[in-house]
Design a protein around this nucleic acid. Structure first.
Lengths: 154, 154
DNA sequence: TGACTCATGTCAGGAGTCTGACATACGCTT
DNA sequence: AAGCGTATGTCAGACTCCTGACATGAGTCA
């Protein structure tokens, strides 16, 4: 510990990452609130728009929550008529989920709101810097996930 | 596998930021769990080590939780003998919090564990890239915070 | 074919965090 | 000096998300 005391939070990438993520989440909640939508709710819809037929578990991984939490959300979204799931699994236990027309409309509004936040976040960053940020973030995530093993990607 | 086209999540800085943050949090929880410590718990201790005498509200802002949540945590930390707060406020209502020797020992173990995670996260990034990441993250956070309008003051 | 492994959906219980509300203490303006 | 707005600490209730556990269905291999 003799050398570790001078951990300046302002130069800790971990802290800054958390700070940025927190700021992004707050900003998203702020613009989503008027629409009566949570960040997880929006994430779920966005995921479904891009990859129709995803299962609850796949949606959960994509939105970074547990499959139990996602399942609870999906049940309410089904009641609200934003998504549909077959009563019985076509194959296995997997219930493919799809957006309804209503869900798509809800997503459209939310997507525009979220996009404005992202635009604001990127303000002041050049194209090259944005590309750098993408690459850096990917590198960090991959390093955190893979336990010291180089994993090839498609 | 079934990658569509349209809006690609893989090129959304917001999504990647959330993904990286999620991976970091998971990694931290994993190494902190054996110590019986949560991420917020660790953050609180780390903050106190660097800025002794912080109030509950200041700690809350630094750890990105509400002051109510931080207060609940501080009460349990007080019971556990990791921090101390005066019974009455020296000035105003602010109760300056400080680490005890026990708290410092707890932090030392946690800090080492977290440091290993951060080292892993930074693996594969050059000094320059790390500096870039810091700068980029700061820029995004600042752009997100100034949501109202020009009312910024460091 | 049968055992084993893995993934999924779901139920139940609990820990952590948030919103809302209230009293108190400080600084600034009038 | 008094009023007003802001910030803090705290209590209470509600909610979200998580951990743990169970049964079911698919894929793999002997």
């Amino acid at each position: 510990m003799s050398q570790g005391e001078g951990v300046d939070l302002e130069t800790s990438l971990g802290y800054l990452l958390k700070e940025a993520s927190s700021a992004l989440r707050s900003a998203m909640e702020e613009v989503l609130r008027p629409l009566g939508m949570s960040v997880t709710h929006y994430s779920c819809l966005e995921l479904l728009a891009q990859r129709p037929g995803l299962s609850s578990s796949e949606l959960a991984r994509g939105a970074f929550v547990t499959r139990q939490s996602m399942n609870t959300l999906l049940q309410s979204l089904e009641r609200g008529g934003e998504v549909t799931r077959p009563a019985r699994a076509p194959v296995g236990k997997v219930l493919p989920t799809r957006l309804t027309a209503h869900g798509r409309r809800r997503l459209a509004a939310a997507s525009a709101a979220v996009r404005s936040v992202e635009v604001r976040m990127l303000a002041g960053l050049s194209e090259d810097e944005q590309a750098d940020a993408l690459r850096l973030l990917r590198s960090m995530t991959q390093a955190l996930r893979g336990d010291g093993e180089a994993r090839e990607q498609g």
